[in-house]
Amino acid sequence: MIEKKYNRKNPSKKRKILVLLRIALITAGVIYLLIFLNGLFTEKEVEIYFSTADAMYLQAEKRELTGEDIYREIAAELSRGPDNKSLRKTIPQEVELIDYQIKDGLLILNYNRALVENHWGGSTGERLTVYSIVNSYTSLENIDQVKILIEGKEIETLAGHMDLTSSFVFNDSLVLQK
């Protein structure tokens, strides 16, 4: 409404500038949309591993990701948890992936302290957390090994059982064989 009034009062140069501005804005919007759509076309399918309800195995769920930052997206999907009701989440509350590095197939994941502090413990609990992360990332073609750091530092253990000074490879024996 305001703009209509404005238009009526100033039918001259200013209107032309405004029109140009609008064209610029719309163009920007269209370009943004094109990039977004492009992103949709390059989206990637990944396997995210969750625990079975009895805490015996890991099972993968397929997820479509935008591929914009696939490492952060996998972390987010792990935190979001499974869609399948017979699966369970393996990542504690408030866990965030601070940053990550890739060196010759080794992915170094740097998590915040919540991964240690909010963890429910148990060898089983710890093992499922570690390997749901490791198996999800090592399902990517370019990742062979995963090492987990907490706030930039190597830790002895996550919950008192596993040796986190080592890096991990895909664990096949934990994956539910159908």
Binding site: S51, A53, D54, A55, R88, K89, T90, P92, W120, G121, G122, S123, T124, G125, L128, E156, T157, G160, H161, D163
Partner: peptide, 29 residues
């Protein structure tokens, strides 16, 4: 964990048994 291992290795013991109680993110496990 490192101290536990070092104590065990220094003792020259024949066996090592670690005792824990388990946990998971589901009360039914």
């Amino acid at each position: 964990l490192k101290q536990r291992v070092s104590k065990a290795n220094k003792s020259g013991a024949a066996l090592f048994v670690s005792i824990h109680a388990n946990s998971f993110n589901d009360p039914q496990s």
